[in-house]
Amino acid sequence: MSGERGAAATGDERTAGGVRTASGVTGAARIRAVPDGRGGTALPLLTGEGALAVRRTRTAPPGAAVTLVGAMSAPLGGDRLRVDVEVGAGARLTVGSAAATVALPGRERRPAAYDVRLTLAEDAVLHWLPEPVIAAAGSDLRMTMRAEVAPGALLVLREELVLGRHGEPPGRLVSRLTLTVDGRTVLDQELAAGRGAAPGWDGPAGLAGHRAAGQLLLVGAEGATLLPRVLTTRADAVQAAATPLAGAPATLVTALAPDARELRPLLIRTLHAALAPSPHPRPALATAP
């Protein structure tokens, strides 16, 4: 696929995987999930255009599951990717991705954009659990993730950002995560890292040498607010805290790790603890330094 990317584009031009314009490749995926009337979830809208494809995957009822497939290798400089997910009242959906998204430097010096919008109606359930985004050396990616959640809905959102492939310096990555619950913004935060980010990003107040940053956002999950707030000790490789947000039943888990491999287990453990049916979901998580 990357060979096709090599053909320089002038103006609009159809390629095997996407629409190449003067401003780079565009890709858009749209998913709408609604109850199917038989206790399951139907997907009346499931489209992938350009660099993004979507596949319905096998799942246990009652929910539906979709896998995002990057039909082209990655966002390059100037590319614009967009994913819209709409989960109707009472529908249940899980979205994952087939592989990590690797941001690469493009021929153009402009940043790539990756925008995700998640909309959950009342009593909708969405698990957004894609593979990591990796900012390869020289890349420049701006991501926005906006989740609009209605009362009573359940959102589980995982985001893993990895700065550089193994042993290489990181590209630039700016990721803004915004959550509204019932129309009110309860979380708005941006992480900027890599070459060209504001000074101090890797210093003792920033990432301090960590190369993987993870977030787990749990909205409407009862167990989430019962998590211990301090999840790791200062001696652990992974640094993490679970912080209940103001004004909504939502908790944000923030984690930093030396690399992606060490990040995932902590996020999974925390997720299981938060969603466990037990009234005291506190498995092997440290509580104090």
Binding site: V230, Q239, A241
Partner: peptide, 16 residues
């Protein structure tokens, strides 16, 4: 909305 993850994590730990 710029954030510094270690400041958040560190503040939670400090309070404990």
């Amino acid at each position: 909305a710029a954030s510094a993850p270690l400041l958040d994590i560190g503040a939670e730990r400090h309070a404990a």
